[in-house]
Write a protein that binds this DNA or RNA. Sequence first.
DNA 1: AATATACCGTGTAGATATTACACTAAGTAA
DNA 2: TTACTTAGTGTAATATCTACACGGTATATT
Lengths: 229, 229
Amino acid sequence: MKEVLPQLNSTFSIDCVLFGFDEGELKVLLIERNEEPFKDWWALPGYLVNENESLDQSAARILHELTGIENVYMEQFYTFGDVGRHPQGRIISVAYYAMLRLGGDKALKPISNYAKQAHWINVKELPPLAFDHQKIFDQGLEKIKRRIKHQPIAFELLPEKFTLTQLQNVYEVILGKKLDKRNFRKKMLSFNVLKDLNEKQKGVSFRAATLYRFDKRKYGKLFGKEISF
Amino acid sequence: MKEVLPQLNSTFSIDCVLFGFDEGELKVLLIERNEEPFKDWWALPGYLVNENESLDQSAARILHELTGIENVYMEQFYTFGDVGRHPQGRIISVAYYAMLRLGGDKALKPISNYAKQAHWINVKELPPLAFDHQKIFDQGLEKIKRRIKHQPIAFELLPEKFTLTQLQNVYEVILGKKLDKRNFRKKMLSFNVLKDLNEKQKGVSFRAATLYRFDKRKYGKLFGKEISF
DNA sequence: AATATACCGTGTAGATATTACACTAAGTAA
DNA sequence: TTACTTAGTGTAATATCTACACGGTATATT
């Protein structure tokens, strides 16, 4: 830092709100802290930004370190900079969210020792969170509620092949309300971004549903037009 | 900063995209820099954050120092943190936008000497901008394009008493397209947030239009419902 | 084999919202 | 008086949204 810029130097951190969907519930990834302050409290995964990485890179690195997951699109949604938000000094935190596919294959890797453990927690049963993380989480949830109406982010929570009922569940859980089955299907199919795989669900104890896949190429053609739920 | 947090200390700043509306044009406030780097270049008004202020407070202070204007609602929209964005070191910048009422009474006060002058510039005729300010501006403009469809921010650009034609102009300029007069009026009035002042425009050389005022109390009652253009 | 169970998948009618479109009224200026 | 400029208004056609119920099909159970 040159002498022309004498002002406040502050520490920067990233906090991540990672959403997952499992067993019909919306989950968020929390860690149990192993360090003061807020030792033993639950918190959003987050860490300090390194010198030579952009914010986006830093968010990707932190996600990788905590979960082993790579190549996930993360989106910055707000920066929290209240003076007293961190008891150890002026720390400004840039918050990101991401939507993750859960399920068997992608278990969470052991994480760095600043946390004891990481768990997917139902967003309806959140424990008290460290720092201002409740506020960050709330704002992240608001963000995806708005975004899911206009952007194809719901698909990122589901396996590649999914049924329309599963997709509707994602919308219902995030928006917090029931949707009409026929109207939902009519509208969703009308966007023409779902590929019917001519394939049925397996391993269910009732009539199997048709599987679909989100078709990015077709979605690209919609560019500019507004999707709206 | 305590020893528990050894990582990156970075300087951070606020940059403001201040929108104004004048003579049917959308304007943005730019300053001409009086310091290296980018001496003599045009830039968005912005400055370094002080130690004891929150980001919101800092944005309000910087706006005040540059324009003399107070009590304007500013909204944070993105944080720019690419490694090379500032030639003098790692500076992370939190960007805010605000919508300002221009016109006679609220002239710009003399500003601190890091800038030679400040001017309202038509957004269609922007000069080359310092740093990554073009990117910041572009993103700010995108933000208000999206926001104007759902939030009552257009009124903030107009005098307290305005005509429906003026309001339509604001929408047309920001959205970058012509709107149908009858449909615009029908829809805008249907929201029931405009108070007819039973008063006519003055000083125009043609038939005077009815003046309206935005009614915040009525708008409050809409809370939760989505407005959509 | 018959039956129960559970979810899948589909259509329509009424209400509401959106779009496209053109002329008369009112005030000012010459 | 006339010319000019903007204000202000309605309707019909179309598209979208909403509410709503039942037969089909695979599995599990007896």
